[in-house]
Write a protein that binds this DNA or RNA. Structure first.
Lengths: 193, 193
DNA sequence: AGTAGGTTAGTGAGCGTTAACCTACTAGGA
DNA sequence: TCCTAGTAGGTTAACGCTCACTAACCTACT
């Protein structure tokens, strides 16, 4: 489906965006990032919109599975959850492409035609958390009086706000410093054992 | 501090942005919205950055108090919380300027120099929720084993994700339909009485 | 011979911003 | 009370920049 050159372009575009923001995601900048002229890009993507669509599809198949992989099967749910938070946060600190994944709708909402793709990406991330909560509910390791989808919504929403806040504060303290308190609160709220 | 004309410009700018997004917030569009030429705007704001700063200050003093006012003193905390959610959601459906307030950092993060102002706005909103939780904790109407700030973070984060999701889904169902389930979950999680 | 994938040059649109000019009102001294 | 100077707040025209995108051309490989 994707040629080598297209993948090269996508990865350059993702790196560019995660480093410098959506404002810097221009045909010009992507082209110069891979060392070609602007019109060369149009040999690989018919227009900018198609490039954005391809970026989102690429994020979905390449990065989302990693997000899923953060939930390890060993240990108690409480420990699993702590590891999940720590891994996610440290990944968000190092690899800004994860921010792109987590905040895709915010980043790309300039293009209204991308809404379905953005919605799918968000729902997928929510589904990963939701199915995890369903699983540990069956093991009796999590309160089950609240639907797993709701727990997922609260978890994801809180994580996102925490990361936004960290950005707004200038990323001075490491993001990881926010993990322990967050973890403790979730364990108590969700009765994680 | 602000002249009548400046206020007129700010309100036009806010309406423009909340209707059509930050992309449409240009000097050209604001000028034509109030029926003058572009250079006329520079008689009232020295440049676009100063206009953005003024918009944020205006949001903070004009809209934020409304947000605070959504928490009514009468009724049990559980009922208060339901009313808060319903009022906020119905306001968000009708008056898009509230979205601007709730998602200010997302909307304006194109201008990095606005970060302190954006941070202050977010912290203020969090503080409103946080002090409310502190209050009802003292009355014994809310679990107090988790810091009020954490409850505020979770509440605000979940609300924002819910609204984002509603946007992404095309705003087909009313936002208010999301309120009852959210309310129920929070009541159970926070032991609201 | 055809195609894939580059190039240079350029187009039209939108952006923030400035220069230069043009009133209308307002305050102060003769 | 009148003339005058200043100012507040408009105007038209234009500048320089960046953007997405296109036309036309040029290889090199199949």
């Amino acid at each position: 489906m994707l040629t080598d050159r297209q993948i090269e372009i996508l990865e350059a575009a993702i790196q560019l965006t995660s480093e410098s923001g959506i404002q810097k995601l221009t045909i010009r900048n992507v082209a110069s990032a891979i060392g070609v002229s602007e019109p060369a890009l149009y040999r690989h993507f018919t227009n900018k919109h198609e490039l954005l669509v391809a970026i989102l599809a690429y994020l979905q198949v390449k990065i989302a599975p990693n997000f899923q992989g953060f939930i390890k099967p060993q240990g108690s749910p409480s420990v699993q959850f702590r590891q999940f938070l720590e891994q996610l946060f440290s990944e968000l600190e190092g690899n800004k492409a994860f921010s792109l994944l987590l905040f895709a709708e915010e980043t790309f909402n300039a293009d209204p035609e991308l809404r379905p793709e953005l919605n799918a990406l968000l729902e997928k991330n929510l589904e990963i958390l939701s199915s995890y909560f369903s699983l540990i509910m069956k093991e009796g390791a999590c309160r089950s009086d609240i639907p797993a989808q709701e727990l997922a919504l609260m978890t994801f929403g809180t994580i996102r706000l925490t990361v936004s806040r960290w950005h707004l504060r200038g990323e001075e303290e490491g993001l990881l410093t926010y993990a322990p308190l967050l973890h403790k609160s979730f364990v108590q709220l969700f009765n994680l054992t």
